Simulated scan of single mutants.
Amino acid sequence: MVDLGALVLGMAGSIDQWPEHGDPLSVRTTAAAQQGGGHLHEPADRSSQEWFCEAVAVPARDRPLKVRAQTWDSYDGPVITLLEVDLGLPWPGDPGGESVHLGDLPIDRCGMLLGDAHALDSFVGLSGESIDGLADVTYWGKYEDDAHACFGGESMSQVDGRRGPYGRLDLPLHEAHELVDQIGDWLSKDPRTGLTVGADAHTHFHLLDRAGKAHPLLAGQIELDGARILRLGWDPGDHSTRHRGERAWDQVYAVTLERAGTTTLLRWTIPAEPDNPE
């Protein structure tokens, strides 16, 4: 007997908003997975609406799954042209069939999530509360070295080892807000412009974003309710030039089930620009 789950590939910026429009994500994905997979969107009874929740759900073996990506070099670094997930299941269709089109997804500027549907029911998104009472404070810009000398912190590493913003991580929420106020007071006493300060509560979204900062594909993982959740970020230059506007501008890309021998793959294809071969 094969234990099945429901795997979701969805837009990170809205993954926690499904209950606002009806059934929880796990209820919707279970129904789609029982039919072999499908495209979830809002409104559910009409065509996909711009800027609303979107995802694709498929049945999958209830175990860790292999995820692969093909890339090409875009404006500021590598971006995904092909995402594949081995679902750990036999090919369900006609032995001669090669693919099943499930739907088309835009690339969310907040990134894309891949994970178990039931685990994602408890995902805390961009505007949620801290899950552990902690937050991270970061600051960067023209006077960052002066601020670092006054307030300390460590340099966050980014892709290719480049130095990121200074920051103090895992602070209790009240300490994080006090530090932001202290930096603000310091700036006002000797007026300076060009320093940006941010305090990010430990939501699941933020922890995934933090985990992927130094990865070439901005890929980060966390554990949520016993399942591994993967977030894929997107190069800002590539998104603003090729994918900006998302569904409103018909910037959507095919998600399919593919036969690989006797097994089944979930595949998302995002073509490279014609003059930039894969």
Rank of each mutant, 00 (worst) to 15 (best):
L4A: 08
A69Q: 07
T196D: 15
K66R: 14
D209W: 08
A12D: 11
A254K: 11
H148I: 13
A227P: 01
F205T: 00
L113F: 04
R231P: 10
L40A: 01
P64S: 05
W51V: 10
W72M: 02
C53H: 09
G152C: 11
L89K: 10
G36T: 01
T30M: 00
A60S: 05
V159H: 05
Q34Y: 01
S127M: 14
A32R: 03
L187G: 10
S122I: 00
R46F: 08
R244A: 15
L266D: 02
G245R: 11
C110Q: 12
L102V: 01
V85Q: 08
Y75Q: 14
D145L: 13
P106C: 06
E20L: 15
L173P: 07
G111L: 12
A32V: 03
D235V: 01
L87G: 02
H174M: 09
A272N: 14
S240E: 14
D94C: 11
E258D: 10
R210G: 00
L207W: 01
E129T: 05
D23A: 04
L218F: 04
G96M: 11
R109T: 09
D62V: 03
F123L: 07
E273T: 02
V8Y: 05
A135Y: 03
K213D: 07
G88P: 13
R61F: 01
R46E: 15
L230I: 04
G5Q: 11
V255A: 08
L82V: 03
D73T: 06
L218W: 03
R68T: 02
S157V: 13
C53S: 12
D185V: 09
D209T: 09
Q49C: 13
L266T: 01
L266Y: 00
S130K: 09
K142S: 07
S188C: 15
S48E: 11
T264N: 06
D209F: 04
V100H: 12
S122W: 03
L217M: 13
G38S: 02
D136W: 06
L105I: 04
V124N: 10
R162H: 08
K213Q: 12
S130I: 03
S14C: 10
D23E: 12
G152M: 15
A248Q: 14
I183W: 10
D225F: 06
E278Q: 06
L208T: 01
A219Y: 03
Q251W: 11
A44H: 13
E278L: 05
G184W: 12
V180T: 08
H243A: 03
L120F: 03
L173I: 08
A135D: 10
D73W: 07
G88Q: 13
P236A: 00
A254P: 15
F52G: 08
D225M: 11
S47P: 10
E278F: 00
L9I: 12
E54M: 12
L179A: 03
D275K: 04
G77Q: 07
H21I: 08
H118C: 03
V85A: 02
Q221M: 10
E175H: 06
L257P: 12
G37W: 00
D132L: 04
A119R: 07
Y166M: 12
P191E: 15
Q34W: 01
G245Q: 13
R163M: 10
L113S: 02
V252E: 15
